[in-house]
Design a protein around this nucleic acid. Structure first.
Lengths: 159, 159
DNA sequence: CTACCTGCAAAAAGTTTGCAGGACA
DNA sequence: TGTCCTGCAAACTTTTTGCAGGTAG
């Protein structure tokens, strides 16, 4: 099922409901965020937007404001905290999923598990709780990290 | 299997491995934390410890230092972020579990699900990932929050 | 004209750190 | 004596906010 409306358009629709406009700054911000499917944190995004050489820069404070709006619009979602920063990912046009997070390499491996969702629903129901969403971070070691010393930046590499 | 060693003693053992001592301040901090099974954030804990009328107060910075140490010792664990503060809970003498978090009341309902753990193991294995732990926060509405008592402030009213 | 917007600088809030004086082995 | 420790204040980081000027309809 294809995404019928672009994130930018979706954002505009959301803004309308609040009597707000899709300004150039807002457009630039959404487009930068949806230019790829990478996770991001606001600071980094702001740096990227501030570095634009053409007249397309957006101030840090505005980036924070726009990211907050995009989250309220349901375009993006907070997935974790990394190095004291909130990490975001696309929520629009991207199915919900969870993450395996490697403590060694920082890798984020995405996975989907309907079974998991089902269990949560059931457990929640047992507690009279209505699920609206969840955030799951599984910590451990990725295959990559466990590879027996292969070009990995380990101080223990024999010199 | 019963907890053979008290948290305080456990903390002492950990400190020894780093050539550190269980000072009065450290002892007071661990004891305060394990005085009940409630979740806590450092700021609140620090306030409690600063308010002690007897000569048992501990400065905020030390509380931060001690809490960090206790986490490294495996006595406590970070479970979520609430109101911009890290929230901790006991990890020692308390079986691992996850939480249903009410977005309305802030309630934290604990639950355990071996099935969930099993699924995570399986999914992880499929990705060559070795699980060491996880953090799961399920958001939604608790029964309490859904009780149809007098007008709860909701933007969705009469839309 | 009347919102809505933006960038800047300053402010918040949580957390960390440098430092001088103490304490303990 | 030589570490380890603590409290205090200052520093830091990320994020938010006040404000003055700008812009669109």
């Amino acid at each position: 099922m294809p995404v019928a409306v672009s994130p930018t358009e979706k954002f505009r629709e959301f803004l309308v409901t609040r009597n707000q406009r899709l300004t150039p700054e807002r457009r630039i911000t959404v487009e930068e965020v949806f230019a790829d499917h990478e996770h991001f944190d606001v600071e980094t995004l702001a740096e990227r937007l501030a570095a634009k050489s053409d007249g397309r820069r957006v101030s840090r404070s505005s980036v924070y404001r726009h990211v907050a709006a995009m989250e309220e619009a349901g375009l993006i979602r907070k997935i974790a905290r990394q190095d004291d920063r909130d990490l975001y990912e696309h929520a629009y046009g991207y199915p919900h999923h969870d993450h395996l997070i490697c403590r060694e390499t920082g890798e984020l491996i995405e996975f989907r598990s309907p079974e998991l969702d089902a269990i949560l629903e059931r457990v929640a129901a047992e507690h009279g709780f209505r699920v609206e969403g969840h955030r799951l971070e599984v910590y451990g070691l990725s295959r990559e990290a466990r590879k027996p010393r292969r070009r990995r930046h380990s101080k223990l590499d024999r010199v």
